[in-house]
Nucleic acid binder design. Structure first.
Lengths: 264, 264
DNA sequence: CGTTCGATTGAGGAAGATCAATTAATGTGG
DNA sequence: CCACATTAATTGATCTTCCTCAATCGAACG
């Protein structure tokens, strides 16, 4: 088991609550998803209207930018699906992010004048290319653009922290469940169906993203299927059926419970 | 051992290099540190001149903002040292970031109108308080401020990804070594000495940040001390002596090597 | 229709978690 | 300033999770 700050041996210096988790925290919220979907559509429309960005169609495997490449553009994902891969000088590679419709790519390049990761398309899609300096200039004219930009950066920061927390505090099976929940959530927030999702990543890629081996991913998925929390399509194990998204959150919570008390 | 995308069994789909690591990648660079230190000082001066921010002295344990609190301010750290703690509804807590002089706090609040983590002072210091809307207004007058802001956000995004990579690809001992290297680097980039550093965190906090137990942190530090890569002060094990920062990077590299070949 | 790549599953082993005992530092009241 | 209480750190022994290695199977593709 992994370390949590709330272990009984060391009462956490920042402990604040050990109460039961209110249901609203892991109940999916259709109305909120509806709003999120609308917000993404509105934002894309705004960007399209004010920036008239260059459009670029991409296919699975296309690299939109590479670590080390000179920074100049930001990219807005209109459709499709990307992975962000971090590279270390010694050859380690790490999938550090997944991007869906409405997400931005390339923020990491601003600080040092060059991108620090690779952005790779995992599917056919369309990205909008925006020159960073043109964007900044446009922000002067349309302040809403600046708001949108900062929101996107802020969201990315907040989400990266969630990822770190997940990797650091959840056991492997729960991490896989949480990954599926996140994926389904991301689709729901974009107005797409979540009962049947197609993972466009291999087990190895998922494992890399979650900090575990492909075998552990496979075993975890098999376990979730045995528990009827997910289902596989008859043919092909890339399509995953998720009858209840909330069941994934509940699985995560259960795997955090001290020990499975049989009779309360 | 943890999964790396470059395991021999599964030749990575994105493999690009397996070459020896060029020395420049882990050799500390005094000139670069000098420049970084100057850049931080210049940036702080600019912010001070253009924004005349409210100053606030903080002491260890002070909470500058809390998760859930309404967003309104950004904070710039002029001196001292902060930790950023992420909280989950079920009570998990995760140190997701450490902040030094020149770093900004509060970006996570922009997107959702409320902060998503706690920012806690670990030492006496001074933060500059800037209202977000006042900052945006000032950016209209002084475009350099916008550049500075975006640089800070971009740096944070890039660094968060490094953290995730470290947790996902390095074994525990290497993570501790890399943590010390990062700490020393951060000090060096701020013009401070790195041969003698004082960790203002307990083993439990370090372990939480690195995704391991406090016992593993302790054992790793003991190992590094046995190997003469670090040393402890006579009294108190919070002060750590680092004769060669590069030795920490080399330790990380060594622990990544397939198997310790005795005679090569 | 064979070849290749991805996924699954099992067996064994190792890294690191957990439990526990001890020691060192820090703080507190007398 | 000291005795005592409290918290942090170390270290050892054991156990669990997950990694590693290996074999098999299914799908996709030329």
């Amino acid at each position: 088991m992994l370390s949590t700050a709330t272990s009984p041996a060391t009462p956490s210096p920042f402990a604040r609550q050990a109460a039961a988790v209110p249901a609203r925290f892991f109940k999916s919220d259709a109305a909120a998803n509806q709003r999120a979907s609308q917000h993404i559509a509105d934002t894309l429309k705004l960007l399209n209207d004010k920036l008239a960005p260059q459009r670029r169609v991409v296919h699975a495997g296309d690299v939109i930018y590479q670590a080390g490449e000179r920074f100049g553009n930001l990219y807005i994902l209109n459709s499709g699906f990307f992975k962000i891969v971090n590279l270390s000088p010694d050859g380690r590679e790490q999938v550090v992010g997944l991007k869906f419709r409405g997400d931005w790519l390339g923020f990491d390049g601003i600080a040092h004048g060059q991108y620090s990761c690779d952005a790779v398309a995992m599917d056919t899609g369309e990205v909008w290319v925006v020159r960073y300096d043109a964007l900044i200039a446009a922000c002067g004219v349309h302040p809403t653009l600046l708001t949108v930009l900062h929101e996107a950066m802020s969201r990315e920061i907040a989400h990266d922290r969630e990822s770190l927390m997940s990797v650091c505090t959840l056991p492997a099976e729960a991490r896989v469940a949480d990954f599926l929940r996140y994926w389904a959530d991301s689709l729901a927030k974009r107005g797409m169906r979540t009962d049947q999702i197609t993972l466009r990543m291999t087990r190895a890629e998922i494992g890399n993203y979650l900090g575990m081996t492909l075998e552990t991913v496979s075993r975890s998925l098999s376990k979730l299927a045995r528990d009827k929390i997910i289902g596989f399509a008859e043919k092909g194990r890339r399509d995953i059926h998720i009858p209840h998204v909330d069941a994934l959150s509940e699985f995560v919570q259960r795997s955090l419970a001290p020990t499975n008390v049989v009779l309360q």
